[in-house]
């Protein structure tokens, strides 16, 4: 039997000979009828002081749309990106292509499919939870989803994100989603529910991002490299569709 514990001190460890090849990191999430937004930076080695460096210059094209290098900011979320266009993304084909060419003539390429539209049906919410349903696609590659539920009260946000893979579903054509809040987390002033339909590449990328964060927070979780779909860079070039419901109490 243990009758007491010693104190645990946090120690800072040396970097030793930890090295990293600082490759490119690129992210672009296309949403139908939204502006083109792309971030192209370099991975940050651990042993160097970090500064938000968005100065890397590329010739950037999505299909035949040229993106311009500047520093952009989403007013709502504060998200910063360094390549954009005044045009909005209007899907015309099944696939969309990305090309980035650096000043050193490094070429980064990516391609993505455009997922089908998604709609939240029969939405219900209460203190106890959230329920709704949505349709699956006959095309299995369009059956990857992300549900995010933000429950706001006066001084905090309770956020739930679920990644759902129904690509193996053979029998159902409609999915009933039911989430029950723990404790009193559903007692809220404002509830925001977003359902996104993801590409398979993006689904795996989101999984790997969560896994990398979890592995750093909890050392029992096996870490894994980031997934992605880019040639010559880490990151993702993808498109998602979404539907949302907001409820004020």
């Amino acid at each position: 039997m243990i009758v007491g514990y010693g104190c645990i001190e946090e120690q800072i460890l040396p970097y030793n000979n930890l090295k990293m090849d600082a490759g490119y990191f690129v992210e672009c999430y296309l949403e139908p009828n939204n502006l083109y937004k792309l971030t192209a930076t370099k991975l940050q080695p651990l042993n160097e002081d970090y500064i938000l460096d968005y100065s890397h210059s590329f010739d950037a094209f999505i299909d035949n749309i040229e993106l311009y290098h500047s520093l952009y900011s989403d007013t709502e979320s504060g998200y910063i990106y360094n390549y954009g266009s005044y045009l909005r993304f209007v899907p015309k084909k099944d696939k969309v292509y990305l090309t980035l060419i650096s000043e050193d003539q490094d070429t980064i390429k990516g391609e993505t499919t455009v997922p089908e539209d998604i709609k939240i049906n029969n939405f219900k919410s209460s203190d106890g939870g959230v329920q709704f349903d949505f349709l699956l696609s006959p095309n299995k590659l369009h059956n990857f989803f992300m549900v995010s539920i933000d429950s706001y009260d006066s001084d905090s946000v309770y956020r739930i994100v679920k990644l759902l893979d129904y690509s193996g579903e053979e029998e159902l054509d409609t999915i009933f989603f039911d989430y029950s809040f723990k404790d009193d987390k559903g007692r809220t002033e404002y509830l925001d529910v977003v359902l996104r339909r993801l590409t398979q590449d993006n689904f795996k990328y989101q999984q790997s991002i969560e896994n990398a964060k979890d592995a750093n927070n909890d050392n029992l979780i096996l870490p894994s490299p980031l997934a992605g779909n880019l040639k010559n860079a880490i990151g993702i070039f993808t498109c998602y569709t979404s539907d949302s419901v907001s409820v004020y109490y």
Partner: peptide, 21 residues
């Protein structure tokens, strides 16, 4: 992780540090 990427959290729209293994 050998380095860090600043990635977009699409559920929030904000940025976050992602350790890169």
């Amino acid at each position: 992780p050998e380095g860090v990427a600043v990635a977009k959290d699409i559920s929030k729209g904000s940025m976050e540090y992602i350790p890169v293994y």
